[in-house]
Computed example of a mutant assay.
Amino acid sequence: MWSLGAWVLLGAVCAGSAQLQFNVIKSVEKTVCNKTVILPCIVTNLAQNNTKVMFVKWKLEKRVFFSFDGSVESIHRISNFSSAKLESLQNLRLGIASLSISQTQAVPGNYSCEVTESNREGETVIELIYRIVSWFTPVENILIILSLVLAILFYWIQLAVTVLKFETTLQKKIVFIIAGVIITIVAVVGFSLLVSDEFKPQNQAGLGLIVLPAVILVPLEYILLQIVFENKLPPFAIGVVFLQSVGYFIAVIGFALCITACPPKKGALVIAGLAIMALIGVVGLIYVILMGSSKKDQVPRKAVEEPLNDAKGVMLE
C-alpha cells in the first residue's frame, strides 16, 4: 500500500518536472509607429541551459510559421514571416525565446510559443492586438491649428487697419491680399492633412504645410510696419519682426524633430513657435491700431487750424 502511494507521488513529481513554465504575458500591442514587434516568450525553469538540446516553435492560430532546432542550429520560417527571428539567440539558453517580427508582417492574432528542452516541453499563448494611434494627440492638433489660425487672423486684421488708416499703393494692397489668401489656403489644406484618426504619411505633409509657409508672415509684418512708419522703423517695431522670426525658427526646429519620429516627441516646440508668432501678431496689431488712432486725431486738429488761419488773414486785411 505504501509502495503504491510512493510510486504515484513519484510519478506526479516526474510529470511536473517535465513541464516547462513561462512568464505569463497575455497580450502585447502594436501600433503603426512600431518598426518591429516583440512577442515575449520566457521560460523560467530550464534545467540544462544548453541550446543544443532545445527546440523552439512559434505558431499563429495553430499554424507553425517559425522554428529553431538547436541540435543543428537551423531556422525555418515561412515566406509570410521572412523577418521573424529570435530576439536573442545568445540568451535562448537562459530561457528567452522571444520572437521579433517586422511591423508589416506581424498580423494581429493569437500566437503560441512552444519550447522543448530534451524531454521537457511547455507552451504559452500571447495575443497580438493592433491599437490605432494618431500622430499628435488631439490636444496637440488643436493647439497647432489654433496657433496658426490666430496668427493668420491677426495678419488679416492688421492688414485691414493698415490699409484703412495709412496710405499705400494699390499694387501693395493686391500683393498683401494675394499673400494672405495663399497662406490661408495652404494652412487649411495642412489642417485637413494633419488631423486623422490614425497616423499616415499625409500627417507629416500636413505639418509641413502648416509650419513652413508660415515664414510668409514675417516679411509681411515687416512691410506692414514699414507702411505705418514710412520706412523708418523704430526699435520696438524691429523687435516685433525679430521676435516673430524667432517664433518661426522655433516652429521649424520642432517640425524637423517631429517629422522623423512616431509618435513625435517635440510637438511642444511646434506649438510654442506658432504661439509666439500669434502673440507677436497681436502685439503688432495693437501697435498699428494705436498709431492709426494717433494719426486720426491729428487730422481734425490740422483741419481746424487752417480755417482759423484764414480768418486771421481776413481780419488783418
Rank of each mutant, 00 (worst) to 15 (best):
P138R: 08
Q244R: 03
L316R: 14
V43F: 04
P108S: 09
A84K: 09
E305K: 10
M315F: 13
A272I: 14
P307R: 06
P300W: 10
I142A: 15
R301T: 07
V218H: 01
T36A: 12
S245C: 02
S293P: 00
L285Y: 00
R120F: 01
T184Y: 04
L224H: 04
T162Y: 00
R63Y: 06
L143F: 15
S112Q: 14
L217M: 14
F229H: 13
A214N: 05
C113P: 05
A15W: 07
A6V: 13
N50K: 11
T162M: 02
L217V: 00
V133S: 12
L150C: 10
V43W: 03
Y222F: 14
L164R: 15
L9N: 13
G109P: 06
K165H: 11
M54V: 07
G239L: 00
I145F: 05
I271H: 07
K57F: 04
V181Q: 08
V72G: 04
V181R: 02
L257R: 11
C113Q: 00
A97G: 12
I185C: 13
V107F: 11
G11F: 07
S98Q: 06
L4H: 13
E87H: 10
F55P: 00
A256Q: 09
Y111F: 10
A179R: 09
E306K: 12
K59L: 11
S3I: 11
G16Q: 15
P300F: 07
S245V: 00
G208Q: 07
V282R: 01
F176C: 04
F154V: 03
T184M: 09
A278D: 03
E140R: 05
Y130V: 03
W2F: 10
V283Y: 01
G206W: 03
A97R: 03
I238R: 12
S17C: 12
I145E: 05
G180P: 03
I286D: 01
N141K: 08
K85T: 11
A251P: 03
P263V: 06
N23R: 14
K57D: 14
S27A: 15
K296M: 12
I145G: 04
L279G: 12
F65A: 09
S67C: 08
H76A: 11
L20G: 04
A256G: 09
A275I: 04
L46W: 00
G180I: 06
I126S: 02
L217C: 07
V211N: 09
V107K: 14
V195A: 09
A275E: 04
L224Q: 10
A256H: 01
I271D: 05
G190H: 08
Q158A: 14
Q298C: 02
Q171Y: 13
Q202E: 13
L150K: 07
K26Y: 07
I286R: 05
T104H: 14
P263G: 06
F236Q: 04
F136Y: 13
G11I: 06
V304Q: 13
G11R: 10
F229S: 08
V282K: 00
S74K: 14
Y155V: 01
K302P: 00
F154T: 01
I182M: 15
Q19P: 06
P234G: 01
N23F: 09
A106F: 07
E230A: 14
V53Q: 05
F176R: 04
Q105C: 07
S17K: 13
K172W: 15
A151S: 11
Q158R: 12
K30A: 10
L224I: 06
A12V: 14
I96Q: 10
W7N: 12
L209C: 02
V283W: 01
